Computed example of a mutant assay.
Amino acid sequence: MRIRVVGVGMGPQHVTPEAADALRSCDYVIAADKGSSDELLSLRRAIADEYGASLVAVPDPPRDRADPDDYPGAVRDWHEARVAAYETVLRERGGTAAFLVWGDPSLYDSTIRIVSELAERLSFEWDVLPGISAPQLLAARHRIVLHGVGQPVHVTTARRLRDDIAAGQTNLVVMLSRSLDLTGLEDWSIWSGANLGTSSEELVSGRVGDVLDSLECARARARESAGWVMDVHLLRAPS
């Protein structure tokens, strides 16, 4: 048995030659099925088909998404349920399986953690193939560098944004932003991208106070066009 964790960027056009070779070696792709409106499952299926692998859709266990007090605990429970579901498939099918990860497996994705736990229960070899990440795409689309000369960039989530700013961070890539609280940041600069690398891509940049409405409209257009939305932002304090 073997598992390959493959970063696929934002779709078939971002599959690197290394990732493509890995996919050709796989018998099937395991993918979470989040219901009839899961457009990303269709994209995973298209990638699997292109490289001759079947797709095994596994009903995704429910997760508390209502901002629970114990957020890490809720995610941990969800991951444990996923591990159990994937273990069942792997025991039944064996062979070489792939997990397709949006963006890059190293950044705000738990597939590596899940496969690590599976490796404690089952005997298999596994490896990780990198993909094009959302921050990379954001910088490329806006033709910018994510940080000043010799300066850091802080990668965080919308959930942690206010705490990170209070701690003194002034140059932040913000991911996982189902909602983005920009109150008090009107004089900051923002570079934003929704559904980067897809036909529903939307870009907005400028002074926060000047583009608030544009940000909301762009996100709504991306969701309406694709049926889903993933966005990422660079926020930078005034110099």
Rank of each mutant, 00 (worst) to 15 (best):
L182A: 15
S189E: 15
S199Y: 08
N195M: 05
S177C: 13
G209I: 02
N171Q: 03
S177G: 14
A194Q: 06
D181N: 09
V173L: 15
R207A: 15
D210C: 01
L185T: 08
G150Q: 11
T170H: 14
R159V: 10
S189F: 13
I165N: 08
L161E: 05
R162T: 07
I190R: 09
L176A: 10
T156E: 13
G150L: 04
W191P: 15
S189R: 04
E186V: 14
R162Q: 14
E186C: 03
A158R: 04
L138R: 15
A140F: 12
L146F: 05
H142L: 09
N195C: 13
D181Q: 05
A167S: 12
L203D: 06
G150M: 11
G193D: 06
V149M: 06
E216T: 11
L172Q: 00
G197L: 11
S177H: 09
S192E: 12
P135V: 08
Q169T: 00
L138F: 11
S199Q: 11
L161H: 09
H147I: 05
H147K: 03
E201T: 05
S179V: 00
S177R: 10
R207C: 10
R159H: 14
L182C: 02
A166L: 00
A139F: 02
D181G: 07
V145T: 12
V128R: 06
G150S: 09
L138M: 01
V173M: 13
T170G: 13
V153E: 07
L180D: 02
V145A: 12
G193P: 06
A139K: 03
V155P: 04
L146I: 13
L176H: 01
R143I: 01
L182D: 08
L180P: 01
S200I: 10
Q151I: 01
V145G: 01
G131P: 14
E186N: 07
W188D: 15
A134L: 13
P152D: 00
P135W: 05
N195L: 04
S214H: 03
T170I: 12
D164W: 01
V149A: 07
D163S: 15
G197A: 12
A140G: 10
L215I: 09
L212P: 09
L185K: 05
A166E: 05
L138S: 01
W191E: 07
E216L: 03
H147Y: 11
G150H: 07
D210V: 08
V145H: 07
E201P: 08
D164H: 04
R178F: 01
R178L: 01
L215N: 07
D181Y: 12
N195Q: 00
D181K: 09
R160M: 13
H142F: 11
N171H: 09
S214C: 14
